[in-house]
Design a protein around this nucleic acid. Structure first.
Length: 889
RNA sequence: GCGGGCGUGAUGGAAUGGUAGACAUACCAGACUUAAAAUCUGUUGGGCCUUGUGCCCGUGUGGGUUCGAGUCCCACCGCCCGCACCA
């Protein structure tokens, strides 16, 4: 009997698949198509366990779909532009292009031994001129369709990477890659008009039934739709009115001051006239970015001395403050503050001693000390203003007096909008109602009275795509002194990146390239300058899925292929891309439909999305002389009775609970090492087996070892069966076949529902049953072949080998998926648990088709039941056929 | 702060409202062996006694719905994730 040699059989079967060309995606009319895609990797140069898990899951689906008769498209490519390549060029010399393509070659070589069912003939990298040239064509079409534009914008500038960052690439005021404090700069930038599609991108989320609800919700929040009121405050000095936006117009009677952003036009005007304002504004700009972490909660304000009139009471004047917490690019960059019902406003008013005016109260307690107002705008106002008379009527003079005491509240009263509250004096006729109804009523009234209008606002802003970097897709436009910004001609595409660049100085090498930058204007032919910005790498990944349908097309896509292969039936990737990549791709699919590059049905490009968990590992740490942590690789650890020790020195090691595998913590296991020690099938089996796919899986040496042992057992089992006498008879053929059909049913369901860990548990159970079976050869052989087939999506090499060893000439990879025979799933007799008052007390074996009445009769006749009944009749007997019997006494 | 998710043996985790703990790890015991490794077999939620096809308790805590709740509802506690001066 030979031994299981993973290295040998894995190479053998990978060659066989290659020769047979079974993973090449082909269009035929006789089979349905299935497009399965895993998020393509960045070519860092090394694959890690996360890749193994991600691609194995996709592979299980792909192989299963092949076996169930689909034309499967399962491609692979490389998200190859981006800064690490430039960083490497700066750090160790060389060229980003060389670095990238070398890494791709390395990673491909590490990925191939996994035996993935990928159509490698469709492989491309986003830095291939054939790819980014088509991206430039797409850009030009989008420009023509009005989906791209240029504007002056305050941008996030990363001083280390010397580039602009998108808002979402700024995390806690720091660049997502460099970690450097981000500064503000004003530059002319290219933008995609994604905000135009905010409503549609939001509404269409509803149709994405096969996306995780979590991802849909994250996108919904990111788009951030809100309905509110827009209106203007007249200035008492006759200057330009100040337009504000509010989602709580029902709190207008609680207005305390009007606030404007430091970037508001009025702030700019004042800045020019008044050095104090200029100082303040400068301080805010700094505070908003560099000091953010330190001064996060600190509210800063500056009283401009300007005043405005309350729209409902001309006698009521409100001061205008510049406040650092007001954002220029949301709403109109100006607000009215209602400190009684907004925590930020309250913090501000407490700091600058501004009035706090309550507009509604909790229904339960009319006088909650925590949100009583501290003061009124003025005694005179209070006495004269008609709008407060209602207040007096309702609560009487006594309450009014309480308000006059300068009680200082700490917490603003901000109930959910769905909660009913009692409105105090107000001109809107609001009584006891919910915040939402009050808002709606107020907006309607404002529109009727003509001083405001309903406005829907989105948090989603346009996507700035300009990057001042070399290693990205050049933006195909030219700046001409006489013609302005001129799109490059399509026949000149691709605009290739020049190869002769250096990285010895920070900044964009394209900017200082001697010849690349100078060119002829595509319109007038005169000397002009090429755009030196390149595109955000998120652009590259926003349409690669479409390109895979026709990677050789000389247009971005080929309609007939897109029509056939789109949409992606199953997309698999990390939750970290829940917002950006997926939202951008949804935008691009729409843009590509508008520009004629995708069919209408592809407007939502990913029919189903699955977000898989990470691979984690324990962390091993010791301390150096100065008590700094020193991390150690798992392979350097030895386990003793006293705990973990460093293999080399015997020094005790502290074990920290599992976290995502990361180089800095050294809690990494290199897939290559696992493959050479155990084989790809073991690695694949393990990453699928221990945890549900959407959750993190902890890599453990014992778990990997166990996976390997099990595959060995299955192998030996197959050998033993193959060597049985051909006409060997045995016992329990039917039982084995029944177990086989049950396993077929369960495993199929497991794969269909992404329950890979559960499917594997069933495969363990079936293998154990088979190992103990004394059935005859025919039945055992059928069982082991089915076992191999059911395992084939997870451990394809081992499955092929067993298949061949049992005498089948074809490939298991293309064999039709086994179908569970219903007749074997239902047993002739069933064992029903019997409950007395809901607690299991006995069981009974009855024929499957026994009627309820008969079951009841047999159950009531049982000793255990009689004992429980103790002579009296049961109150109730519940019989769930095939399930359970419950006797209530 | 807002939004979402999750709490089950020593551990990872199973369980369309119907026998809680499948499957695996770890541990323990046994077989094989001079011995160990490997392999194989078996035990393992807690408690009680009268050792039985026995009883009691048990899915974060407390309540509720139901013949029956890990699962549904309410409140609380704990942990994790996402977003956040968005007016």
């Amino acid at each position: 009997m030979s031994r299981y040699s993973a290295a040998e059989i894995e190479a053998k079967w990978q060659n066989a698949w290659d020769r047979a060309g079974i993973f090449k995606a082909t269009r035929t009319a006789d089979r349905p198509k299935y497009y399965v895609l895993e998020m393509f990797p960045y070519p860092s140069g090394r694959i890690h366990m996360g890749h193994v898990r991600n691609y194995t899951m996709g592979d299980v689906i792909a192989r299963y779909k092949i076996a169930t008769g689909h034309n499967v498209l399962h491609p692979m490519g490389w998200d190859a532009f981006g800064m690490p390549a430039e960083n490497a060029a700066m750090a160790i010399g060389g060229h980003p292009k060389t670095w990238t393509y070398d890494n791709i070659a390395d990673m491909r070589a590490q990925m191939k031994p996994l035996g993935l069912s990928i159509d490698w003939s469709r492989e491309f990298a986003t830095c291939d001129p054939e790819y980014y040239g088509q991206q430039q064509a797409l850009f030009l079409d989008m420009l023509q369709a009005g989906l791209v534009y240029r504007k002056n914008a305050v941008v996030n500038w990363d001083p280390v990477d010397m580039t602009v960052l998108a808002n979402e690439q700024v995390i806690d005021g720091k660049g997502w890659r460099s970690g450097a404090d981000v500064e503000r700069r004003e530059l002319t930038q290219w933008f995609f008009k994604i905000s135009d599609m905010a409503e549609e991108l939001l509404e269409a989320l509803d149709g994405l039934d096969n996306w995780p609800a979590k991802v849909r919700l994250m996108q919904e929040n990111w788009i951030g739709k809100s309905r509110g009121l827009e209106f203007s405050f007249e200035r008492t000095d006759g200057g330009d009115p100040i337009t504000v936006y509010t989602t709580r117009p029902d709190t207008l009677m609680g207005a305390s001051f009007v606030g404007i952003s430091p970037d508001h036009p009025i702030a700019h005007q004042l800045e020019a006239q008044n050095p104090e304002v200029a100082d303040f504004v400068a301080k805010c700009r700094k505070g908003a970015t560099t000091e953010e972490a330190l001064e996060k909660a600190e509210k800063l304000g500056f009283d401009t001395g300007l005043t405005v009139k309350h729209p409902l009471d001309p006698n009521w004047e409100l001061p205008v403050w510049i406040a650092n917490f007001i954002l220029m690019d949301y709403g109109s960059g100006a607000i009215f503050a209602c400190p009684a019902h907004d925590q930020r406003d309250l913090d501000f008013c407490r700091k600058y001693d501004l009035p706090v005016i309550e507009t509604f109260r909790d229904l339960g307690a009319r006088q909650q000390s925590d949100h009583e107002l501290s003061s009124f705008p003025s005694e005179e106002f209070f006495e004269n203003s008609p709008v407060f008379t209602d207040y007096e009527n309702r609560f009487g003079d006594e309450d009014k007096k309480i308000q006059k005491f300068q009680k200082v509240t700490v917490t603003a009263y901000v109930p959910p909008k769905t909660e009913k509250v009692a409105y105090l004096s107000n001109p809107f006729g609001l009584g006891t109602t919910t915040g939402q109804e009050a808002v709606d009523t107020t907006i309607d009234l404002a529109e009727q009275q003509g001083w405001g209008k309903s406005k829907t606002q989105y948090r989603l802003r346009d996507w700035g795509l300009s990057r001042q970097r070399y290693w990205g897709c050049p933006i195909p436009v030219v700046h001409c002194d006489s013609c302005g910004v001129v799109p490059e001609k399509k026949e000149n595409l691709p605009i290739r990146l020049p190869d002769d660049v250096t990285f010895d100085v920070p900044g964009n090498p394209l900017d200082r390239h001697p010849t690349w930058r100078d060119c002829a204007c595509p319109s007038c032919g005169n000397a002009a300058k090429r755009e030196t910005d390149t595109m955000d790498t998120f652009v590259d990944s926003s349409w690669y899925f479409a390109r895979f349908t026709a990677p050789d097309a000389d247009t971005p896509t080929r309609m007939e292929d897109a029509e056939y292969w789109m949409n992606v039936d199953q997309y698999i990737g990390g939750i970290e891309h829940a917002i950006l990549h997926l939202l951008y791709s949804r935008f691009f699919a729409r843009a590509m439909q508008i520009t004629g590059h995708l069919p209408k049905k592809a407007i939502e490009p990913f029919d189903a999305l699955f977000t898989q968990g990470m691979v984690t590992h324990e962390i091993y740490v010791t301390r150096d002389d100065r008590d700094r942590p020193v991390y150690h690789l798992p392979e350097d650890i030895e386990w003793h009775e006293s705990g973990a020790r460093l293999g080399a020195t015997g020094k005790p090691v502290t074990v920290i609970p599992s976290a995502k595998m990361s180089k800095s913590k050294k809690n990494v296991v290199d897939p290559i090492n696992i493959i050479s020690a155990y084989g790809a099938d073991t690695a694949r089996w393990f990453v699928l087996s221990d945890s549900p796919p959407e959750r993190d899986v902890e890599w453990t040496a014992s778990g990997a070892e166990a996976a390997f042992k099990h595959l060995n057992r299955v192998w030996s089992l197959s050998e033993r069966i193959a060597e049985m006498d051909d006409d060997a008879k045995g016992d329990g053929d039917d039982d084995l076949l029944r177990a086989m059909h049950k396993a077929t049913f369960d495993v199929t369901q497991g794969i269909e529902s992404f329950g890979f860990n559960a499917a594997i548990a069933k495969l363990y159970a079936f293998a154990n049953t088979l190992a103990k079976s004394r059935a005859g050869k025919a039945a055992q052989q059928q069982a082991v072949k089915t076992l191999a087939q059911l395992m084939s999506p997870m451990t394809p090499h081992l499955a092929e080998d067993i298949w061949a060893r049992q005498g089948d000439a074809g490939l298991v990879a293309t064999a039709p998926w086994p179908v569970a025979d219903e007749a074997f799933l239902v047993e002739d007799s069933v064992t029903l648990p019997i409950q007395i008052n809901g607690k299991r007390r006995a069981e009974i074996n009855v024929p499957r088709d026994m009627t309820k009445d008969e079951v009841e009769k047999s159950v009531l006749g049982m000793d255990a039941v009689q004992r429980a009944l103790n002579g009296s009749a049961p109150k109730k007997v519940i019989v769930v056929p095939g399930r359970i019997v419950n006797v209530v006494v």
